[in-house]
Amino acid sequence: MATKTGLPKDVRPADTSMIPPGILDSKKRKIYNPVQKNWAYIQKYGRETQGAYGIGTGSLQPGGENGAHWHGSYSETFTSLKGDVGVYSASRGKVTLQPGDSVTVKPGEVHYFFNDGDEEVEFQTKIEPAHEGFEKALYVMYGLARDGKGGNAGVANGLMDTAVICSMGDMWPGGMTGALVPLLKILGWWGRVSGKQKALVDKYWVGA
């Protein structure tokens, strides 16, 4: 239940950075990436499920895909909602999900999703357990893209921004670029110590 400030009872006004922006304003549940020309909509933040899971939906343009990556602390389940959604995982290879089909990628497994069709597709992702850092990283990625700083793979142009996103969201590159993980972890640590991470979160999450 919210107080007169609009915040849940267990959150003080000074701690609004803890509140996902879409809880305070439902319009902020949907974010857009002009680089990839796709959108994401957060159906359930982890804070709304007591940390059990997080659910979102997203779109992907024809020919689009994100870079191969892995998550160390949570699984990710993909479900096609519209069109044929491609998902690659190290254990299954490439699979095509038709509407209603799902596939789960376990923690630590390299994966990516793609659209090799001629029309935009839509899909749902569910991460278990929830990971607020992932939610924040998503807002930062899309925010940087809107500011002209987003990379084609959906992360960021700048190495430090990329490191902060990877570290905060527990999303690490796979494949040949996986060799960069040790460097990204060091830079991610520096991003936390130097205040870079806080600045990004303040701008694109708190100030969404």
Rank of each mutant, 00 (worst) to 15 (best):
K126C: 13
A137R: 00
A14K: 12
S89C: 03
D15Q: 15
S26A: 15
V181H: 04
I31C: 08
D10W: 12
Y142N: 08
Q36D: 02
M1N: 14
Q98V: 13
Q36F: 04
T3N: 14
T104F: 07
V105S: 08
A90G: 12
M141H: 05
E109L: 13
A163S: 10
G58A: 10
K126F: 07
A14P: 01
P62R: 06
L7M: 15
G191L: 02
N38I: 02
P20L: 12
M176Q: 02
G56F: 03
G148L: 07
T104K: 11
L24I: 15
P99N: 15
G154F: 01
Y112M: 01
P20I: 08
D202N: 13
D147Y: 02
M171C: 06
E119L: 11
A163Y: 01
S59Y: 06
G191F: 01
L159V: 13
L81G: 10
G150P: 13
A14E: 14
E120D: 00
G86E: 03
V87A: 07
L60P: 03
S59T: 14
G100C: 15
A52Y: 13
T162Q: 08
S80M: 07
Q43R: 10
G86C: 05
F113K: 01
Y88W: 15
A130F: 09
P173K: 03
K203Q: 09
K203G: 05
V121Q: 11
T3K: 13
L97W: 03
Y112E: 00
M168V: 12
L180T: 06
T125N: 04
R29W: 15
V181G: 02
K4I: 04
Q36T: 07
E128C: 08
P182I: 06
L24S: 14
A90P: 11
W189A: 10
D202P: 02
A145K: 02
Q43D: 14
H111T: 06
A179P: 00
I165M: 05
G154N: 01
Y112N: 04
E48P: 05
T162E: 09
R47A: 08
A145L: 03
G100Q: 15
K196Q: 07
G154L: 04
G58P: 05
V164W: 02
G6N: 12
P62H: 07
I127D: 01
R92G: 03
S89I: 02
S80F: 02
G175F: 00
T3R: 14
L138W: 00
Q124V: 01
T57E: 12
G158D: 15
E119N: 12
G169Y: 11
G100M: 15
T177D: 03
E122G: 04
G63Q: 06
V140H: 06
Y139Q: 04
D101F: 09
A52R: 14
M168N: 08
K30I: 11
E120W: 00
K136W: 00
